[in-house]
Amino acid sequence: MAGHPHYREAHPLIFVITHWINLICMVMLAFSGFYIHYPFFDGFMGVARGMHFVAMYVVIINLTFRIVAAFFVKTAQDLDSREVDLDIKNWLPQEKNRHQFWETVKYYLFLRKEGVISAKYGSLQKIAYLATIPLTYLQAYTGFAIYGPSMDLGFFRAGLDLVGGPMNMRVIHYLGMWVFILFTMVHAYLANIYNFAPSKLIFLWKETVPEGKH
């Protein structure tokens, strides 16, 4: 499973860049968000808010670009192949992942020994990645709903009524960040648990090819 080659075709340069942008923005958002939640040192609020807004706009544009790009950029569909097809196919259900969801769960719970056959993204992995899309947009929505100049708009007023007011929205926005923190923890853990070849590829765009492969 993890001894497989890590070819550049799995993550073309454009997605290495979008991944970097995501990472940097998310770190900035979490840091400035924690600061806005409770300023743990002095002299930074104006910068923290500016940082929060800039990183938010960038991450939203980046995500939207990434979604559109999935329909145009070609990426590898399998772990040990350089063969490419449209990236969006990685995000739709794939034959290789069929009937494998519970087997994957079992594998991670140590209820089975062998690794699970899967496409480039396993079923659990794919669901987790896809879930970040609505979550990111939801964070933007909850954020605008507690932002003075925009919370007055009907679109946000309706949401505020739904959750019972700006304070509850603030709490949801805050807990939403924890969902991203949990995602990032699990994501970084599972990506690198076997070895650091995946990180070398996604951050440095360096291939790791086991002997006998090319």
Partner: peptide, 13 residues
Amino acid sequence: IGDGPPMEEMKAY
């Protein structure tokens, strides 16, 4: 850890 687990030859299903 390292090279990962031995892979299944065929899906359990």
